[in-house]
Nucleic acid binder design. Sequence first.
DNA 1: TATTGTTATACTCTATAACTATA
DNA 2: TATAGTTATAGAGTATAACAATA
Lengths: 167, 167
Amino acid sequence: MLTISSSGIVLGMLESPPEPLLSRVGYLLKHAQLRLSAAIAEALAPFGIDGRGLAVLLVLSTEYPMSQLEAAGRLNVDRTTMVALIDGLEDKGYVVRRRSTEDRRKNVVELTDSGRDCLHRAEEARARVERRFLAPIGQEGADRLIRDLQVLLTSGDVEGGGDREEA
Amino acid sequence: MLTISSSGIVLGMLESPPEPLLSRVGYLLKHAQLRLSAAIAEALAPFGIDGRGLAVLLVLSTEYPMSQLEAAGRLNVDRTTMVALIDGLEDKGYVVRRRSTEDRRKNVVELTDSGRDCLHRAEEARARVERRFLAPIGQEGADRLIRDLQVLLTSGDVEGGGDREEA
DNA sequence: TATTGTTATACTCTATAACTATA
DNA sequence: TATAGTTATAGAGTATAACAATA
């Protein structure tokens, strides 16, 4: 539940939240993510999937046909990892593997009706948790937070370059 | 390098950033954290430590004497994990273990001069990376982001309760 | 010869259980 | 009997290497 990452410490319910860490962005990001992550996992449990499975269902719903390797590329996970993910979703009847007729090396992975239903309901559940998580900073704060994070992610790399900030 | 977490997918440098994920707070938090985390790890490499080690040094510097178990409690990590962390720091000469005279079951862990020097310089390096990471949203945006995240973390739990937001 | 899916294997990180010494 | 530190072990998660089928 609680962990310590390569970029800093991560706390759960701490007796005494170490003040120096509370002003560190790495700590704040990691801990916020962990909290939200745990809440989402809990909300998705009834569907028998976790955030990873939901992300796979989401990607599969956006394009058709999509092979395992293509899906892996979209989510930037290893193809061996995708095998296990698809295995899990197939076990639950959310997707089916079908040999591609055009290239028999490929598996076309398609959502079942059950999978589509799960996707929609699980997405709602996830969005609900997200809204509750963001509630303390209000709608305006939430919009702001999302936009700021998008800017940070779409900006150039942090690494590389010298010591001084380049304005 | 790239991973997929229990609360969602995590991307590195993706060919096509899946739009649906870019509006998900879980994805944004995780990915922002990963980026910053990688940059910090790179900046700390010359010191022979990572973010975890730095956090331990930081905690050890705030209170004296502090036992391994107390340090573990401050950072909310397992005591067995703390053994390995202290081992690493001791190997590099940043800390020393000393048997407590008051309770001979306890190890008092204290910073060496070298450890204190490392702490200060590594903290500077970390802060520098953090500033560069936040640069795209400006000083105002950075302050806002930090405050928003602090509010989210100091608010009550996300989990528990029913389906509807409690305003 | 390269690519897709698969399996087996290894590696990292962390927690659990058991052991020792102290209390 | 409980606590602090340690060690050994196991579990989750991921990546790497090798293999079969196909191109």
